[in-house]
Each structure stands twice: as C-alpha cells, then as structure tokens.
Design a protein around this nucleic acid. Sequence first.
DNA 1: ACCTGTGAAGTCATTCACAGCC
DNA 2: GGCTGTGAATGACTTCACAGGT
Lengths: 262, 262
Amino acid sequence: MATGRTHRPATRSRGIPEATVARLPLYLRALTALSERSVPTVSSEELAAAAGVNSAKLRKDFSYLGSYGTRGVGYDVEYLVYQISRELGLTQDWPVVIVGIGNLGAALAGYGGFASRGFRVAALIDADPAMTGRPVAGIPVQHSDDLERIIEEDGVSIGVIATPAGVAQQVCDRLVAAGVTSILNFAPTVLSVPDGVDVRKVDLSIELQILAFHEQRKAGEDAGADGDAEHTPAAAPPAPRGTTGGGTRKGPDGDVPAVMPA
Amino acid sequence: MATGRTHRPATRSRGIPEATVARLPLYLRALTALSERSVPTVSSEELAAAAGVNSAKLRKDFSYLGSYGTRGVGYDVEYLVYQISRELGLTQDWPVVIVGIGNLGAALAGYGGFASRGFRVAALIDADPAMTGRPVAGIPVQHSDDLERIIEEDGVSIGVIATPAGVAQQVCDRLVAAGVTSILNFAPTVLSVPDGVDVRKVDLSIELQILAFHEQRKAGEDAGADGDAEHTPAAAPPAPRGTTGGGTRKGPDGDVPAVMPA
DNA sequence: ACCTGTGAAGTCATTCACAGCC
DNA sequence: GGCTGTGAATGACTTCACAGGT
C-alpha cells in the first residue's frame, strides 16, 4: 500500500468520463469569453472551434451533462456557463493553500484564473522564516508551522505543492493528515497518498520533452541527415549490458528543480 | 486553415503511441534517480512503482522502443536512460526561447529540470522595455523587437509562451513566422497555428477545476447534504432559455491571467 | 525461480452518420 | 434548413495472462 492507488479505476460518479471532465474547463473558458461579448447562443460548431476541439466530441461531452441545447438553434451561453460551472463544482467557494512560495508559487498566488473560477487563496505557506509576513500578490506568507491550523480553521480541502522535489512528499503527508483531499503537485516527484485523496501533477519539463520528441521526428522526416533511421546500435551508447555496473555517470544536476526556494 | 489541426491524427511516426511518449519522461526521471544511486538494474515492477504506473503498462511501453531488458533480470539502468533519452531527442541540444518574463516566465527560466534534460534557455524575451537587460536566473532579458533575430541566429525551434492571454496569439504568430515549430503555451488561450507546428498547453487553472469536480463528488457521497442528487433545476439558475438574450452579466474578471507582466 | 515481451481480451474514447426536433 | 442528441462503428489504450528466455 506504499504507493496506494492514486486514481480510482472508475472515477465517474454518475457516469461522466474523465476525458470529458478534463474538457469542461475548456468549454467554460470559451463560453465565458462569449458571455462577455454578450453573445446569446452558440452552435456546437462555433463553440468547438473556440475551444479547440471538434464539434462531435463537444456534443457528445454535453450529452453526458444532459440536454441543454435547442435543436436548430444551439446552446444558450449563459445557461451553459451555469450548468458547466455547477457540474465542475465552481458554484461554491474553494479555499486553497499554496505551499512553497518561490517564483512558481508567487505566479500561482497571483494567477487571475483562480479567483475567477471560485478558487480562493486561503494562505501562502513557506518554510523559510525570512518569507514569513512578506506579502506576495497581496497575501502575507505564513510559516509552515501553522499549516495544520490554517487548513483546519479554513476548511481547506485543496492544496497546491510548489516546493522543491525533496520536501514534496513530507509536505504532502502533512497536508493529507490535516484534512486536504485534493492535491495539485508541481514538484517533479511521484507522491504517494492514501485512498480517497486525489493527486494531479503538472510537470513543466515533461511537456517540453514531449515537444522535443515530435520535433526530432519532424527533422528526421525531411532528410535522413542525422535521424535515427532504424534503432541501430548507433555510435556510442553506454554499456549495452554492464553486468555489475561500475561507475554510473552520476550527473551534476539530478532532478531537483532548483526553482522555488520554498 | 483558421484553426488548423493542431495535432496530427496519427502522430506516431514509427509506431510509438502518444500515451507512451507522454510517459517516457516519467520513466526517465525515475531512472535518473536510480542512476544517481548507482543502482545497476531494475525490474519492471520496481521501476513502475517509482514512476507511479503499473508494471504491465511499463513493459508494454518499453516494447515499443525495442527489447532493452533481460529476462529473469530486468533492465540495465544506464542503458535504458540512454535509449529513452535518444528516443525523446534529448541527446541533442534544444535551444529554447521564453517569451513573457513575469513570475511564471522567471520560474521557468530558473527551472533546473530544463537544463538537465538538454534544454538550453537561449533567450528570455519581454515586451516591457524596463525589463530589457535585467538578468533573470542569470540570463539578461531581451526586448521583443529582437525576437526574430534571436530565433534565426540561434536556430531555435521551441518556444515557450508565458505572456498574458491577450498577446499570446500574436507572439505565437511571430514565433512561427521566425521558424519555431514547437510551442509550449502557458497562456489560457487556444492558439491557432499552421500545419506542421505542434502546440502543447499547460493551464494552471484547468487542473484545479478537475480537482474541484472530484472533490465535489467526494463531498456528495458522504451525505446528501448539499449535493446535487439528480440534475434538478435547483435553486436559481439563469434564464434556461433566453430568446433574444438581454443583459448577460459580463463578469468583472474575464479570462486574462493577470500574472506575467510580459 | 524470476522477469521480460507480447498476443488477446477488455475498457475507454473518438468519430461517424443520421433520426428527431425546432 | 439547420442543429442537437445519440446509437453504432471505429480506434486507442490498458490490462490480462502466459509463452519464452536467462
């Protein structure tokens, strides 16, 4: 049970697929933009274009929520905004704590997209005493000693971890022990949590690596210049089969982010 | 052409599924950690635990790369690190530009996970003249006027957009025109790009919204207290069917992030 | 005895295509 | 005529389970 199962196999409570849930925020954003321009209705085609998906998928997604459109006309923008917000749980207030106030933590603290979606930054927490009391994005940083008290007093159930990788697990454990049941993790580590706690991960470098993969393929397609062609042994790979493994290069930088003084 | 298709339908060039590609960085991180501890070999079970996936998936993933393991033994750590790095294109140097040096841009500029994976921050670019020349994470910020020159001189093919949503599309257009073919977008907007350009999106608030969805479900399961039960019309939804749509509430905050002075 | 590599089965997600309604 | 809502078809991904190698 060390690692626990982070995500329950069938998370859909009343049947909304995960993939659909992940797109609802996209639709919501597009709809909010339309709402601000006072557009009364949209067709699935238009909304899909604005959200960057295709219209069949959008209609299917909405069909899981109910029948909120009008045939021959489209969807009422305001009504859909409300329905999606409600489905996502954004009609209520979600107090959130952010732990680790480095550059990233500060960026998150000031991120407008949180406040406008029902998320309220209840507290900024950092282990560095020098940070305590200093205001970041208008909110005074508090010391990690007060973490448990803050979570309990404010009824916080969502925590954001923006600390270095080395301390992420222990921060996570404290959050969970204090009652947090959803965690957004920016530290490059796999967190283990008990059943019933959700973890979502955002890793800035993973996305770049995926881009690099595709970028490499593009270059390889143009000319066979430096591409890999087939997986030939190539030039100088490390020991293809070291029996006892001697040195191991032990790079200078490991995995720790170096950002986020925490 | 307008929205273009951002992701090609069958991206696998020689057959590596997207889902697998997205996990390779995870394996690589776990392997790097093992490598630093001078562990010579791992079994699929151990490595899977360290990466937070199950072992069957991991073995299947590796099978797309080739047969790099030894039955009865496991995988040679160093060799796998090399093979995955090569597959991801991390054995070469990738110069990257970061546009928009606010808190988030600064966090990215200093992120250790980039440098250690073959990504080199070639330039930091911001539209604010007051930022020009100021060092961030040891790299002097340059003005956006020089964007095209920098990209061409350094042969940059990957760009990171950390600007406010309002200018993201035009920054994107300039990057693409100058030769960038992969973009990592942190601005909460759908970017439209021509065919052949890859875009990946990271939206900080989307992840939180997904957590809120599940969090709401958890609360609803305990007691029917305030849950939605079924999708009854409930209390006070906006006009379920406004014919011509009168006011539309036009909220104070729209969608723009407010972070990242750009 | 142990562990990889992989066909086969199962599950989930996307797309098609059209009936039904305005 | 235009557009939603949805069964059915297709495709992608995951998991199972075990043959095959060390």
